[in-house]
């Protein structure tokens, strides 16, 4: 990992020096060892703080939509992030020519809560080396296996390599096994209706409607989310059963064919609510019905955002 970080730094330094981009979106170190933060590098001196490790838990593509289209953006992308960027390009959220994607094949993002579960909360130092993670907790070093700490979405990841990156740092990794994600969904599908509903209820109804999941998702960029509409109001805005369930269902459905299974929504949730089982299920359906996976190129519109005048089904027009 340290070499990768050096390579990354050199690459970004070059981009900034050449004035090829106005800003580079990456991660930086913060005071808390487990919490690297999204960062926006505009000059070389700031690169002292650059960070790249398994704890970089956000999807950086999320920030693309904040910039005017003529901003030249460099962005560090892992597999899912590159697909989010592609999906955003398809949706015309930033022109491809004003983007420079620095691709990094991804070993998987670690779930901070899995680490804390194994150690305790007050970790004062963190380092990783291959599959070894080492943390300092109450002055003692604790060694952990990276593979035990991966976020659930990353355990199911199929495409760890960036798609359409302008440069690729590090060696490409083998593709993930698509049967893993399929199995996880099939387990859910195999439950009977009541069991599925009980599962959904248990997750959705803990929701405090903080919308961190929405704000952390690159594809949730609407200026006005349906839950924020006041005239008319589409859902109850409280934490009632009706309100939280409607929020969870509709959010997921708005992601069909757009979600790249990055898991950023789940990692952002303060209430440990599972929600990727819904989007992963929809992604599986999109693949089966339309042979479509979001973000695999930067020009095919998602099935639900495209139409065909010769469509043999007449229900839309």
């Amino acid at each position: 990992m340290p070499e990768l970080k050096t390579e990354l730094r050199n690459n970004i330094e070059q981009l900034l020096n050449d004035q090829a981009v106005d800003v580079v979106i990456a991660f930086k170190k913060a005071d808390l060892p487990l919490r690297p933060q999204p960062a926006f590098f505009r000059n070389v001196e700031e690169l002292e703080d650059l960070e790249y490790n398994g704890l970089c838990q956000n999807n950086l593509a999320n920030y693309l939509t904040r910039y005017p289209h003529d901003t030249k953006i460099g962005i560090v992308v892992r597999g899912c992030e590159s697909r989010s960027v592609n999906a955003l390009i398809v949706e015309k959220q930033h022109p491809r020519e004003n983007l420079y994607m620095i691709g990094v094949p991804c070993q998987g993002i670690l779930d901070i809560r899995k680490i804390i579960n194994k150690t305790g909360e007050d970790i004062t130092d963190y380092s990783e080396d291959g599959d070894q993670v080492s943390v300092i907790f109450k002055g003692n070093e604790i060694k952990l296996q990276r593979s035990d700490l991966l976020h659930d979405s990353c355990l199911r990841c199929v495409h760890p390599n960036p798609v359409n990156a302008d440069v690729l740092l590090g060696d490409p990794l083998p593709e993930g096994d698509p049967t893993i994600v399929r199995q996880a969904i099939e387990e859910f599908e195999a439950l009977d209706r009541d069991e599925r509903y009980a599962w959904f209820q248990k997750e959705a109804e803990r929701c405090i409607r903080c919308y961190a999941c929405r704000e952390a998702c690159p594809m949730c960029y609407c200026t006005e989310c349906f839950v924020d509409h006041t005239t008319p109001r589409w859902t109850e805005s409280d934490i009632s059963q009706a309100g939280t369930q409607a929020w969870h269902i509709i959010r997921a459905f708005h992601q069909a064919g757009r979600c790249t299974s990055c898991g950023a929504c789940e990692r952002a949730c303060p209430m440990d609510i599972k929600m990727t089982y819904l989007t992963d299920k929809l992604n599986k359906d999109m693949l089966e019905v339309y042979q479509f996976e979001a973000g695999m190129d930067d020009n095919t519109p998602p099935p639900f955002a495209s139409f065909n005048l010769d469509d043999k089904n007449r229900f839309v027009i």
């Binding site: 999204p38 903080c210 919308y211 961190a212 952390a216 952002a268």
Partner: peptide
């Protein structure tokens, strides 16, 4: 710059008290 504008910090905060009546 990196803030998401979510409700985590304020909803979990013991001194934040803003409310909306619907």
């Amino acid at each position: 710059e990196s803030c998401l504008g979510c409700g985590v910090c304020t909803y979990l905060c013991p001194t934040c008290f803003c409310f909306d009546i619907v």
